[in-house]
Amino acid sequence: MSGTTDKPRLSRVHMLDLLRQMIRIRLFEDKCAELYTQEKIRGFLHLYDGEEAVAAGVISLLEKQDRVVATYREHGHALVRGVVMKSVMAEMYGKREGCSGGRGGSMHLFDNTTNFYGGNAIVGGGLPMAVGLALADRMRGEKHVTACFFGEGAVAEGEFHESLNLAALWGLPVLFVCENNLYAMGTALAISQSETDIHAKAACYKITSEAVDGMDIVAVEGAARRALHAIRETGKPYFLECRTYRFRAHSMFDAQLYRDKTEVEVWRKKGPIERLRTWLEANHMIHPEELERINAEIAAEIAEAVAFAEAGSWEPVEDLTRFVYAEAAS
């Protein structure tokens, strides 16, 4: 299974790029949290803080024509996929210039130019869609892969099991990526699942699966590389369980009564950005000024995105009932 393409790429440039991708997500979302307290962003805001290695490690390996199906915690996936940051920020504001025209908000980022199929806010709801996208590719003779992200909470939904079965039964090129952050909102995995080893569940559908340390982007990328190689070789689905942790609250309304602060602190020390940065430093692969430059470039991009969103326009109320049905070409 391990061809030459499966070997981890440890080149300095590549590692710095991975670090940059993760910091970019983190700083973008830090700004979103700040804008939320200023009531610039409203509704639900689910942050990915701590889980960045998963989106960055998997999505950066996808081809342009591959497809991505994500959840309501999808800012990181959109950014890594190449949805333009300022259009993501404008969407957070609900402005017309947003990547979903402002109609979706934080939970419903869509972008047809990068085959980014949302932002699904019904837990488990994206899995059948991913199966269907892969079915379309199979029936059309296209060789694309559909990468489908979901949390471990989705594993309790019937759609998870229906979708794994369909993908395996019909031999469809879906990369299932479970972001196991241990809590479905406030319900711990151990009190919601009889079998907490999630990747083992894929085996009963005869889907090749592996569990990986989701805080280690090198491990995530290596596993994703193996998975994508296998899917492209066989056309069959593959299941990755990325074991990770959410440092922040489930959403901005969550008082986090269900977990200990010390638990969060222990995990923070294992954080994916911290981990890669200290490894790079220990191996003299990054200079402090390089890190400063990365941070500064991202800060500038975020500032530009905020300015773009601020300057964006509100859709006129007269347009309220548009986009319910296709509009006849004029």
Binding site: G125, L127, M129, V131, G132, L133, L135, A136, N165
Partner: peptide, 15 residues
């Protein structure tokens, strides 16, 4: 739910 959702995905994928 699975095959109706798969129908949705397949429709979005060009079928």
């Amino acid at each position: 739910s699975g095959f109706t959702g798969a129908g949705i995905g397949a429709a979005m994928g060009g079928m």
